[in-house]
Design a protein around this nucleic acid. Structure first.
Lengths: 135, 135, 135, 135
DNA sequence: GTGGTCTAGACCACT
DNA sequence: GTGGTCTAGACCACA
């Protein structure tokens, strides 16, 4: 029952189960959980993150449906495969969309474009740092 | 009933009323609607954007609450003042949060940081262009 | 709030949400719900089938993930497309598997093969009949 | 430690213990294990089938409860009697139910009724063949 | 009105 | 121990 390599943030606008899902994907991508390796049990993870077990169940099933996790009855839940790189086309679309939205929201908040860029650079740097020294 | 200088996109994950609100703010900031000038009537705007009138009502009320729009019964809805710049502190917090989220989601989708940056640069450029020649 | 064209059967070993899902697919395939048409609201269907709304929610989301239903926030849930015929290969595999299982379970219960066949013929006939005169 | 005359299939939706139980019943009915004859030890069978020994224990206990197997401590587990034919009434009910379910699931998967029949015929033929020459 | 999320708690099946 | 299902009920966001 090692501490999970991510947390949920109540202030984050994303629903909790999404945060957990992306946290897991993130962790798998990073190599915290290798293929064939078990992810924390539903109850453990729920306890750690202080959320309801059903919320974790939802995530595991959702990822199971996508073939990323393999659920073995009575045994546990395992990493089935590494998140397949999203098809380039779709990734590009997401990128474009997300960037547009950021600029759009920023503009209506009076945030200058160059501030967006520097904030993004900063966030990238932070992410890289936390990756090198996980805890 | 001039065409509104923005559109709503069902594919955009933001709720429709948010899109409209930000579109309006954007437009006011840009000068499409000057202070004292009327914004489109609820019905017209709803018709133009093909959304439920109640949704537009919600936006106008929300902006009215913030003192940005002024509703004059029987006359219409007018721009009361230009959107005040959000306090620096809050703006900074939003920026940080938004950037972090972007990186986070991107990572779980296998998007490289540098792609995020270039996509953002591109989006900023696009926004600036459409500002100069607002269609 | 027309009566749903299917029911859930507590004696059926399949979980309720599966029964509902297959009932819906069945209904869509049969043309009871056309593409673009709304399916019953979560609450209505739950009430009709006397199940918990969450159970219906689960089904709608699951089918939504598969792109068969389109969920429009605040509006309702609509048929997005007709269930795509499962790829022939997969269908064949399912068929083979299901038939093998039936024979296997039958044998261990002392059911003769020819009884299996006649029971199946009978069930097919029943299904066809109920299709012609739905209620 | 002769190879067991059946296997378990993780892809089979039936729980593993059920598969084993039915495999055993099947084998006894077929005469692979005669009355008074020992069935494989829990450990051997578990090893052969690559399942958890507890799972085999469960099966043996379940069959023991029904009086089909007799556990002689220190000696092993023996076939106590041949599976009694299920009462006709219950068998009929099972048949009807199973057939209905097959048709139901098939329909929602776009499988034509006549394909069901031919698949069943094929499965029956396969079963008979494997009975004659049990590998 | 619509669907979405979350919690709490019960019960089940499987290993 | 593991995950799966279902209920009940609350609260939220959206149109």
């Amino acid at each position: 029952m090692a501490p999970p390599p991510f947390r949920v943030d109540p202030a984050d606008p994303r629903p909790i189960w999404r945060q957990i899902e992306e946290g897991l994907l993130h962790a798998i991508t990073r190599g915290d959980y290798a293929v064939g390796t078990p992810v924390p049990s539903v109850r453990d993870l729920a306890k750690q993150l202080r959320v309801n077990p059903n919320t974790v169940v939802k995530v595991y099933q959702h990822l199971g449906d996508q073939g990323l996790l393999e659920v073995r009855r009575g045994e546990g839940t395992f990493v089935a495969r590494t998140p397949e790189r999203i098809p380039a086309r779709e990734r590009t679309r997401w990128l474009k969309e997300a960037a547009r939205r950021l600029v759009d929201e920023g503009t209506s908040k009076g945030v200058a474009p160059r501030d967006l860029l520097s904030a993004l650079e900063r966030a990238i740097k932070d992410a890289e740092d936390s990756e090198e020294s996980p805890s």
